[in-house]
Design a binder for these strands. Structure first.
Lengths: 124, 124
DNA sequence: CAGGATCCACACAGATACTG
DNA sequence: CAGTATCTGTGTGGATCCTG
């Protein structure tokens, strides 16, 4: 499930829209899901991977790096015998949660609307 | 500026994450920008194209169709001599505005943080 | 366990040209 | 003006394999 989980960057030019630039923060496949999974608190790499089954290690790793670099989340390495790394949203990262929640809400409502429309059609 | 303005779909599989599904609503290159441009009210095709310079007619058209189909915006054709079409956010579409604003805010803050960090480094 | 390296496919945006 | 059709390039994610 990736073919369309692309980012929202802009390679070369004038970048007239600030929004585009800001959208980069959550750009990249699965990035929103990562943030979503971290809502409740810090999680380990494997936990995140389990939360988002279809994501591959490579991509998850890449996304985590980007999000860390962008200041959305922080990485904590714990010196245990089997390596253990935890990720956590930064304060700024937490500000993204309401945004994602709003999107989910709208998505939900639209879904309900569609279901309702289908019902109406079926009734005829 | 498009190479990375891809959508956030998911082609085939199990789709375990509701978020992913909801994100589709604003999926596709420039989709957020379109919604952003329509914040203030209805706009015509050419106005939208002017608002978002780097977008091509083809892509803008595609995005508008998708957003309409998804119930985020509505299309009004006006029977004038030169064809004139206006687009407008639906009620649900308007609910996405706060979400985008939140993202922009975070993007902004992160930008400021970065600038600050660079200053600190430069000072040394 | 956490994640880096490779190789590959393909969906998507761009450019251009055309229509009513 | 508002779009559509076609062709092409490319970034990005998936799968797999491998390591400390």
């Amino acid at each position: 499930m990736p073919l369309k989980m692309r980012r929202n960057l802009s390679p070369k030019p004038p970048e007239p829209c600030m929004l585009t630039e800001c959208m980069q923060v959550i750009a990249g496949a699965w990035a929103p899901n990562v943030i979503w999974s971290l809502r409740a608190g810090r999680r380990r790499f494997s936990e995140l991977k389990a939360d988002i089954p279809p994501v591959s290690s490579k991509v998850l790793s890449a996304r985590l790096s980007e999000l860390e670099e962008r200041g959305v989340l922080s990485r904590h390495v714990r010196p245990t015998s089997p390596p253990s790394v935890e990720y956590e949203l930064t304060e700024l990262g937490q500000e993204l949660i309401p945004a994602l929640e709003a999107i989910v809400q709208v998505g939900h409502k639209l879904k309900l609307m569609r279901a309702h429309e289908l019902d109406s059609e079926a009734a005829e």
